[in-house]
Structures are given as structure tokens and as C-alpha cells.
Design a protein around this nucleic acid. Structure first.
Length: 229
DNA sequence: CCAAAGATGCGCT
DNA sequence: GCGCATCTTTGGG
């Protein structure tokens, strides 16, 4: 289980290292599991961050000690964040892929499909089951009312580190143009780009360019802000 | 009221 | 697979 000390660091470092980590969530008798394939860092003093929108009761977990869950509603569904670093910083868990292993068997995967069917009732392909921040919360039955402001808990919901994933860094997406929209604080698992949010990586056929670049794994520390050197 | 760190369906290639 | 219009629901002014 990833500990509080892991979260109490620079938001970009945390976001980057969460790519590849596994989310474990117990629902009834089953553990539902997903591997994080996309995460974004947000800092208190940049306009893309919810912190910048103002400190309100529902956003209070953004300012709580690192490792506190912050769930908010966006168009289409609930979204999962973790407070990190300095008060007001957070990491948004943007996409994942389901995991079937010794902890979560095929019946867990079926439970996730049952929790997150297509709107017409049909079944999603596995690689699209959690391919968005709202879809992930649905597939894991994570709701604002239950989890906003709470902390990780080895009994029912935690992250499990899985270092060494090949990570690419890219510009954030989905942010209004006048609010620091293009900051490069998005981190994507290079092997699962097709399960990430619609983004320049998949659009450019995995050719490096101005919008994204590959990072060395586990070697170079991330600067707090700005591009890697 | 309405913008929002989205999701979906549709037409197209 | 992709781009785009449309639909969605909530917190906050």
C-alpha cells in the first residue's frame, strides 16, 4: 500500500510515479483492481487547478494533508484525486485499465463491467472500461458522498506501487484556454496510450513532438514546474 | 442560472 | 480509428 509519505512530495513526481500503480478497491466480497495509465498534476497557484477556483467546503480536501481523497463532480461523472505535496496541490487519476490477477479474478472484472455498462446497456471493451476519470469512478463504484475527504484504507481502498512503467509526459487537456491550459503536467503509460483520455499522443501515432516526450524511468527527478531538462 | 479537470453518439475514413 | 455536436449533473455565484 502506498503510504502518506509518497503523496507528500512534488505533484508532478507523484503523478508520474502513480502511472503504473494499481488501485485496489473492495466492493462486497470482491477486490476490484485497475492499473493507472494516466494522471495529471495540479498546483495550488496555477489557474487550471481547482484550488485556484477558491477554497469551498467541497474543495476542502484539496488543502487537507497529503494522501487525502478529493472527489468532485464534473460533466459526466465523479472524478478521483489525491491531495499531494503542499496544501492545494493534487493529482487527478485520469484513466486506468482493469487488472485481473491473484487478488482480482475474472469475477471482479465482471463486477466492474456491471458497474459501468455503456449507456445503452451494452458491454464496453476491457480497454475502455476505465479509460476516463468518470469511467474509472463508475467501474470502481467510487462516489463523492462516500469518499470525498476520506483517506486510503488497507481494508477497502488503496493504491499499490508498481514501479518501472514507461511514462510519457504531455500537455494537460480539457482545461479552458485562459486557465494555464497547456501546462505539461500530464503523465501517460506508454504501453496503454489507447486507454488514456483522447489526447495528442494517440493522435500522433506515438511520434514524439512538441506535445509529449518520453521520460527515462526511475532516473531523473521531475522539476516542480515546467519542462524536464 | 451556467460553467465545468466529461461522456456519448454520429458521420466519416 | 477520428472530429465534432450534443447531452449530462452538480456546486457555486
Amino acid at each position: 500500500m502506498i503510504t502518506d509519505a509518497f503523496f507528500a512530495r512534488d505533484a508532478c513526481a507523484v503523478a508520474r510515479e502513480l502511472v503504473g500503480a494499481v488501485v485496489r478497491r473492495r466492493v462486497g466480497d470482491l477486490w476490484l483492481s485497475a492499473r493507472i495509465v494516466e494522471a495529471e498534476a495540479y498546483y495550488r497557484d496555477e489557474k487550471g487547478s481547482h484550488s485556484w477556483l477558491g477554497r469551498t467546503p467541497s474543495r476542502e480536501p484539496m488543502f487537507a494533508p497529503a494522501g487525502t481523497l478529493y472527489l468532485y463532480w464534473s460533466q459526466g461523472g465523479d472524478s478521483l484525486n489525491v491531495s499531494v505535496g503542499e496544501p492545494g496541490d493534487a493529482v487527478l487519476i485520469k484513466a486506468a485499465v482493469p487488472v485481473v490477477d491473484a487478488v482480482s479474478g475474472p469475477e471482479s472484472l465482471e463486477a466492474m463491467h456491471a458497474l459501468n455498462p455503456r449507456r445503452d446497456g451494452g458491454r464496453r471493451p476491457d480497454h475502455r472500461l476505465c479509460s476516463g476519470q468518470g469511467l474509472l469512478c463508475r467501474a470502481l463504484d467510487l462516489r463523492i458522498a462516500d469518499w470525498n475527504g476520506r483517506r486510503f484504507d488497507a481494508h477497502s481502498f488503496f493504491f499499490e506501487s508498481s514501479p518501472g512503467a514507461p511514462v510519457v509526459q504531455a500537455r494537460r487537456i480539457g482545461i479552458p484556454a485562459d486557465r494555464d491550459a497547456k501546462l505539461p503536467y500530464r503523465f501517460v503509460h506508454a504501453d496503454f496510450a489507447r486507454s488514456a483520455t483522447k489526447n495528442p499522443i494517440t493522435a500522433r501515432s506515438l511520434t514524439e513532438g512538441p506535445d509529449w516526450w518520453r521520460l527515462a524511468t526511475g532516473v531523473r527527478p521531475m522539476p516542480s514546474h515546467g519542462l524536464p531538462s
